[in-house]
C-alpha cells in the first residue's frame, strides 16, 4: 500500500505532526500555503490574541490577590485592629521569619506524615484495585470496608485510633491514610475496568496472560484515572494529617503544624497562628500543583485531558 499525495487517509504531509492537520496542538503554527496567502494577517492576529490571553492568565490572578492582601494590610492599619484579633499580612510574614525555627520543624513533621500516608495509600489503593479487578468476589467482599472507612468522618474515628495505637506518629499516619486511600482505590478500580473492550478481545486473541493484560492494557488505561485520584488524595492526605494532629493535640519536639495552631490559639499568638495556616495552605497548593504537573507530563502524549484542541 502506498500513501499517495491525494490519499485523504494518508494525510498530505510526510510527517505525523502535519498529518494530524488542525486536530493537534502541534499543528497550531502550521498553516497550509493556501491559507497563508489568503489570510496573511489571520495567524498573526490569532497569535497576538493568544499571547495576550497567556499573559492575562498570569497577571489577572496575581493582581487580584495582591490587591486583596494590600487591602487587608490597609484595613488593619487604618482601623488600628489589634494584632491579637487580626494581624496584618506584614506581621504574619515577620512572624513566619522570626518563628521559622519552630514552624519549619512542625512543617517537616506534617509533611512527613502527609507523604508517608500518601505513599501507603498509593501502594494500598493500587494494590487493592488490582486485586479487585482480578476477582469480582474479592471486590464484592472487601469493597464495603473501603466505603465504611470513607464515609465515616475521620474526626470521629481519630480519637479511637489514638486510643488503640500507642505510637502517635503511627496513629496520625493511619488517620491520614484512611482519608487518602479511597479516591485512589475507587479511581484506579474504575480505570482498570474501563480498558477498551475490543482491545481486551485483541489481547485474548493473541493469548495474553492475565499479567500481560494487566501490564500492557489495564494499567496504562487506568493511568489517567489513577492520576486524577492522586490529585485528590494528595490534598486529602494533608487534611487527614492536620485533622489527626488536632485530635491528638500532642506537644513536644515532633509536633505538627496543627498543634502549632492549637498552641498559638491558647497563647493568643494570632500572628503565629496565621503563619502556620499560611504554611498549610501553601503546602496544599504545592502538592496539588506537583501532581497536576506529574499528571500532565505522563498524559500529554496521548490522553484527551492533556491535549489542547484548536477549533
Amino acid at each position: 500500500m502506498n500513501v499517495s499525495p491525494t490519499d485523504p487517509a494518508g494525510g498530505t504531509g510526510p510527517r505525523p505532526a502535519e498529518a494530524a492537520g488542525s486536530r493537534s496542538s502541534k499543528a497550531g503554527n502550521m498553516t497550509s500555503a493556501l491559507e497563508e496567502t489568503a489570510l496573511k494577517s489571520g495567524p498573526d492576529l490569532r497569535a497576538a490574541a493568544e499571547r495576550r490571553d497567556r499573559w492575562l492568565r498570569i497577571i489577572l490572578p496575581v493582581v487580584i490577590l495582591t490587591s486583596a492582601i494590600l487591602g487587608w494590610e490597609a484595613l488593619v492599619r487604618i482601623q488600628e485592629i489589634p494584632h491579637y484579633i487580626l494581624p496584618a499580612p506584614s506581621l504574619i510574614m515577620e512572624t513566619l521569619v522570626k518563628d521559622w525555627a519552630v514552624l519549619s520543624g512542625s512543617l517537616i513533621t506534617t509533611l512527613q506524615i502527609t507523604f508517608a500516608a500518601l505513599a501507603v495509600a498509593v501502594a494500598g489503593g493500587v494494590g487493592l484495585a488490582v486485586l479487585f479487578t482480578q476477582s469480582k468476589w474479592v471486590e464484592i467482599s472487601f469493597f464495603p470496608f473501603a466505603v465504611i472507612l470513607q464515609v465515616t468522618p475521620i474526626i470521629a474515628i481519630a480519637p479511637l485510633i489514638l486510643i488503640y495505637v500507642d505510637s502517635i506518629p503511627v496513629a496520625l499516619l493511619i488517620c491520614a491514610w484512611i482519608v487518602a486511600f479511597f479516591p485512589i482505590l475507587s479511581n484506579t478500580t474504575l480505570g482498570l475496568n474501563s480498558a477498551d473492550h475490543n482491545l481486551r478481545n485483541l489481547f485474548q486473541l493473541y493469548g495474553a496472560s492475565r499479567w500481560q493484560t494487566l501490564w500492557h492494557l489495564q494499567l496504562p488505561a487506568a493511568m489517567p484515572y489513577f492520576l486524577g485520584g492522586l490529585k485528590i488524595a494528595g490534598g486529602l492526605a494533608l487534611i487527614g494529617a492536620i485533622v489527626a494532629e488536632f485530635a491528638a493535640g500532642s506537644a513536644g519536639r515532633g509536633a505538627g503544624l496543627a498543634y502549632r495552631i492549637l498552641e498559638s490559639g491558647y497563647r493568643l499568638n494570632i500572628p503565629r497562628m496565621f503563619a502556620a495556616l499560611l504554611l498549610i495552605s501553601v503546602t496544599g497548593i504545592l502538592i496539588f500543583l506537583t501532581f497536576s504537573l506529574l499528571s500532565h507530563l505522563m498524559l500529554r502524549k496521548w490522553h484527551e485531558s492533556a491535549i489542547k484542541r484548536e477549533n
Binding site: P8, A9, G10, G11, P16, A19, A20, S24, W302
Partner: peptide, 8 residues
C-alpha cells in the same frame, strides 16, 4: 494514534 487521521 491521536496524531493520525481515521484512515491512517
Amino acid at each position: 494514534p491521536r496524531e493520525l487521521s481515521g484512515g491512517m
